[in-house]
Design a protein around this nucleic acid. Structure first.
Lengths: 249, 249
DNA sequence: CGAACCCTTGACAGAAATCAACTAAGGTGG
DNA sequence: CCACCTTAGTTGATTTCTGTCAAGGGTTCG
């Protein structure tokens, strides 16, 4: 475990309130490793031996069933994933692979389970992390069940705009086929949906999104704190990363 | 707070490991109340003032968006709901209403948050509850994204059969329109789906389900621990209650 | 007995997946 | 540097699935 990664991990909501002594104990058992893009880190169904922390790069969480596959989210620095499986000592429900060259820290799950039993502040942090992650997935499930494909796209774009300080122009951070999978549709359908949304106040050209009529788009998507935010509350792999704003000159 | 409900609550995984002193402190602030069927207990968006515990009866968790509504799960005795919102001190993401006359215990959320800070065993129980609930919703979301409607129905019936000790005949515990909503489809579609599944090894007549060809149904549904169980891991309103088996004479 | 309400069925319209073809961009290797 | 290959994205044609609307049967409950 290299020293230079410790501060950024220490600042994670999950670890920032625990006793230094316990944090250091936890980190003594940690591995740090760099992976190329496209490397599978976790296979769903495998025993949860490690908690993963993304220090650099990006990791896609996805789930498979037979030949089908669906993106569940993307983890960016600094965030952790598969916390719940480690706690329950149960098989991972999602697979993970790097989208870019990434630096990953792995904490042995038994150490994790031991530490929150003797560090209340850490236990409280874990509780908050899990409660937030739960709420994020509930929102995701609500979106899938209550909105149709075009409404999900519109709400997603509006949410991305909000993350980019309500900028009217911004750049998508991940491939469209990944966004499509995350939103529960095929890439073809996302493509067509984006085209159709041009009449609802948003134009997309390549990776660049421009909100042309915010009121109209807002009326169409009917965004809602109970479905779209205000903010990602937990990091356990159930949302996509925020975009970068394009600020007008 | 009546004395006679305490033992069953005390036996909940959430409370069974905490210090008696802390449990009693928690219960001193609790209200117990009986409600008729069809009573709305919680409205999504409201501040999370209470943790709810179902002592008798049944409670439906559902979410709405505009005019649409979707069932997220049913809580039966003895189970709790909206734990995550109480912990985050954030608005409820789901509404709740009684399906039957029900006896409900309500714990003030601030008490809850105070107690797990000073009772590590309780904190660990909360962690396990939330981790389980998270995994249950992830499974639900995976099912929605990876399976089509008929496959979801088949998997649901097979899961119900498993809960009924792998009985080949059992009785559904909730209205079909509620099951339909939970599975993310209209009642009409569920009805047609059930009809079509007669060629895949299961027959449904009224509320009674009979598995006529388990191998065939299993092949069709391709059930999987990463999607369907083994068991509900958390109770926070994201699954439907198990059926009762009909044992052959 | 009537009034709801649930469930079912049919007919239809709309949505989404699939299949196929084509473009464009990026990377590789000669 | 260019030819080639791979892959993401788009578009169109088609089929399949799903929701909607409407009607009728059955049940429960007042």
């Amino acid at each position: 475990m290299r020293i230079d990664e410790l501060p950024s991990i220490r600042h994670l909501p999950l670890f920032c309130n625990m006793a230094t002594e316990n944090f250091e104990a936890l980190m003594r058992g940690a591995y740090s490793q760099s992976f190329p893009a496209g490397m599978q880190l976790v296979e769903q169904g495998a025993p949860a031996d490690f908690l993963f922390i993304v220090v650099e790069g990006a990791v896609e969480m996805y789930a498979g069933w037979g030949k089908r596959e669906s993106t569940m989210g993307v983890i960016r620095p600094v965030g952790c994933f598969i916390l719940a499986a480690c706690i329950k000592d149960a098989p991972y429900l999602m697979s993970a692979r790097t989208l870019q060259p990434s630096k990953i820290v792995m904490l042995p799950a038994p150490d994790l389970r031991a530490v929150f039993r003797r560090d209340t502040e850490f236990a409280v942090s874990v509780i908050n992390e899990l409660a937030g992650a739960f709420r994020t997935v509930i929102r995701h499930a609500k979106g899938l069940k209550l909105r149709d494909a075009r409404q999900r796209i519109a709400a997603y774009l509006l949410e991305q705009s909000r993350y980019a300080d309500n900028a009217n122009s911004f750049v998508l951070q991940v491939e469209k086929r990944l966004i499509a999978s995350y939103l529960g549709m095929t890439p073809e359908n996302l493509s067509r949906g984006l085209r159709q949304l041009e009449t609802e106040g948003v134009r997309v050209k390549g990776m660049e999104v421009t909100v042309t009529d915010r009121d109209r788009l807002t009326e169409f998507a009917a965004p809602n704190v109970l479905l779209d935010g205000p903010d990602p509350e937990g990091s356990d792999g159930i949302c996509l990363p925020p975009p970068t704003a394009i600020h007008p000159v």
